[in-house]
Write a protein that binds this DNA or RNA. Sequence first.
DNA 1: CCGCCAGCGTAGCAGTCGCTACACTCACTC
DNA 2: GAGTGAGTGTAGCGACTGCTACGCTGGCGG
Lengths: 182, 182
Amino acid sequence: MGRREEIVEAATDHALDHGLVGLSLRPLAEALGTSDRMLLYHLGSKDALVAEVVRCATARALERLRALPASASPGAAVRDLHRLWEAPAVRRCQRLHVEASALGLFGREPYASTVGSANALWSSAVRDHLARSGVPAARLDGVTHLVDATFMGLELDASFGSPAGPALETLVAAVERLCSGS
Amino acid sequence: MGRREEIVEAATDHALDHGLVGLSLRPLAEALGTSDRMLLYHLGSKDALVAEVVRCATARALERLRALPASASPGAAVRDLHRLWEAPAVRRCQRLHVEASALGLFGREPYASTVGSANALWSSAVRDHLARSGVPAARLDGVTHLVDATFMGLELDASFGSPAGPALETLVAAVERLCSGS
DNA sequence: CCGCCAGCGTAGCAGTCGCTACACTCACTC
DNA sequence: GAGTGAGTGTAGCGACTGCTACGCTGGCGG
């Protein structure tokens, strides 16, 4: 692993803990045992570094999602996806993804474009898992978007103590009915 | 309206356009035709100003939500809530709310605490509307949280061009089945 | 007519930001 | 052994941050 990849991995760990918003080169460099000068030497600019961090966090979460075995039913798939999402290692990545998405809300770069492609990857992996778990093709698009959006929204809600339970149970029940009936 | 309220309203307009992240006192003051000195004089600190802005944006959206007449059915309620959410005046407020929520994700103040109470208000108003529109009590909690989380998530997705249509239709169908059956 | 104080402007503080200029070491090739 | 290039440390640039010290103004009550 080259120095650049080492830096990106370590910076990702740091961002997973502290978020993207306050991120600045000097404290980050100090935490990584190097200097801001070096971060810029290897990454080119802060924006490039941030883009790499977002990409790296997404890749870590994706690896876990792709390793998830097919679930027994659409309802079980939603539950399994949520369990995966709540695994600490995955959740921290998703929290970062949500933060990056919000930073792109007003078109601010590099968040807007980076998060766009990250989300396409994640969303299509969710779709794959749902398809493998018996969600009928006619419902696949809608359920994928619904599940994806709901989990993101729940992550936002969770930050001020709102429990995910009721919404999750409702979503599971809804997906079950939607995929068995009609 | 006192000078303080005028400033908060104008600052809210500005934040609705430009977001909370890059917000800094001097450009804001210039846009408002005053000086950073005055913002601090009337509001006390930047954090207090931000808290007021978030509160103000939430109040504007709430006013619209509370004026929404009861819908004909649970499914229609979801559709009506979404139509309300997509009204430009409301949507800008919700976009700001989502941004503020994300800024609170890592516990950063004043976002975390301000957004918490704003969300409680919004969530309970959504709950009221759903109850008025025929969502049975047993489902009220789950549907409220589901709808709320989904809309927030869709707002995040919308920023990189993902259409809300499929997820919304699926949510409407799901809520309809959930509230008529069993 | 005087004092007072809310409201406002000017100037500036100490600190942080991303980024760069420059000099230097070291391993390498020729 | 000279030259070369990647990698690194130091120091600092200009811009910007939230915030404050200080002085002025105008209208009010005494």
